[in-house]
């Protein structure tokens, strides 16, 4: 057991937001979709891009760039929606994460992962499970449950009110 709590070699899906590479535990990823039209839900913050029809299910989509304080995701040929399963309040929910492009699936051994630095990532530390090291490049491994935790999404209401005021 090391500082990151990661003890086994796990597969990760890597994706890009701008020129940064992020990774998600593959067991959290259900599928990857091409960009489709998103229906905006009125009076909600901008990072919540809206909902899509996923084979008859309505699935919310979140713009990861906006969520992490970058500019809004531009729609390109590589833009895609990563459908993730998140565990919220004892329930599994499905959510689409809009990202610039999906890279590949990689194996990372515990030894290749370092704990997240306390400062300097421009991200809240609890969002990061660890920093993967590969080919001399750092990959930010996200704790997707934390990113979309109940606290995080409850700010939605406040921002919604601000937007309308």
């Amino acid at each position: 057991m090391n500082a990151t709590g990661i003890t086994e070699t796990t597969q990760y899906l890597t994706f890009r937001l701008g020129d940064e590479v992020f990774a998600l535990d593959i067991s959290k990823v259900r599928e990857v979709l091409d960009f489709t039209s998103i229906t905006k839900v009125p009076r909600t913050p901008e990072f919540m891009r809206g909902v899509i029809n996923l084979r008859g299910n309505v699935v919310p989509v979140v713009d990861m760039r906006l969520k992490f304080g970058m500019t809004k995701t531009e729609n390109t040929v590589n833009t895609c929606i990563i459908i993730v399963e998140i565990y919220l309040d004892g329930e599994t929910t499905i959510l689409g994460a809009l990202s610039d492009s999906v890279q590949e699936v990689i194996d990372l051994e515990p030894g290749q992962i370092e704990p997240a630095p306390k400062i300097g990532t421009r991200l809240r530390t609890e969002f990061i499970k660890g920093m993967g090291k590969r080919d001399g490049q750092f990959i930010i491994i996200l704790d997707i449950d934390k990113v979309f935790s109940a606290d995080e999404l409850s700010i939605v209401k406040d921002t919604g009110e601000q937007a309308s005021a």
């Binding site: 039209s37 229906t39 919540m48 008859g56 309505v58 919220l88 979309f148 999404l153 409850s154």
Partner: peptide, 27 residues
């Protein structure tokens, strides 16, 4: 009626969504 999901539970004035014949989503 389809649920909008947990993250939209506080969306004001919208109670859910439905899928139209052409596959698009209506609120």
């Amino acid at each position: 009626i389809k649920n909008l999901g947990w993250i939209y539970r506080s969306a004001e004035g919208i109670s859910g969504a439905t899928i139209l014949g052409d596959g698009s989503v209506a609120l």
